[in-house]
Amino acid sequence: MIEVRELSKRYGAVRAVDGLSFTVEPGYVAGFLGPNGAGKSTTMRAVLGLDAPTSGEALVNGGRYADIRRPMCEVGALLDANAVHGGRSAVNHLRCLARSNGIGDKRVVEVLEQVGLAGAARRRVAAMSLGMKQRLGVAAALLGDPGVLLFDEPVNGLDPEGIRWIRDLMRGLAAEGRTVLVSSHLMSEMAVTADRVVVIGRGRLILETSMRELTERFRRDVLVRTPDPAGLRRALERGGAVVVPDEDALLVQGLEAADIADAAARSGIAVHELTPRSASLEDAYLELTEDSVEFRTEEVAR
């Protein structure tokens, strides 16, 4: 379990995280979403005790990360796949990390096989592709068989096969009852991976909800085509719907598709098309974070 309470982190004048609170429970994949610079990595670093919060706290399993005796056995983290010493071989890199937490070499071999790097164990880390380094970082996170996992942008640099692998891995880890927090700036990725999402922008919480509710919330309207738009419009507006004509169709809000069909049948009006339309999650995400984008492409004044 991860608890972030009123967390704030300032770097000079910049508020990277500003009064952020959320909780991640075991058993599901929590997506941590926000545009670049929203404070996702800073929050994760605060959870892991790398950055000291300006105020507030970030707790893992009810305590401070720095107080855990063998942290690798409770929390696994992949922050930056490039944060490795390039001169060591993959297996030696993992052995160095494992030994600091009293984890044996046998487990190192196991995780290398689990992430599909058994064949590259002797290869120098500097000679690895970003995708292989991501796998190595995942291996390091799994070394202590921890109950809490944090992944910061794990799909970066992975090929489609690798993306599917890490998605299945995270879902598998959550299904085993672990706490899994995955950050991303890609809604499309989270849509297929996460069960719940925490959306932040400019260091503040925008939304914490389940993926299903997010989809539901941004369901927009029903597109209706009929040979008698004016008649149907009157019928629907009597039922309390808001109807907007759109070329040869009507866009209806406030009534479900079934209610529209029933209303049309009662009025004896034929309906040629009836399509519930939801905003894509990508649109929803952009709408949510619109006001909080740190770096946007400004239109150049002429």
């Binding site: 670093r45 983290a77 944060a83």
Partner: peptide, 12 residues
């Protein structure tokens, strides 16, 4: 290269 962060996560 940032290995120190990986190290400090394993030895906080």
């Amino acid at each position: 290269g940032g290995m120190i962060r990986t190290v400090l996560v394993t030895v906080p």
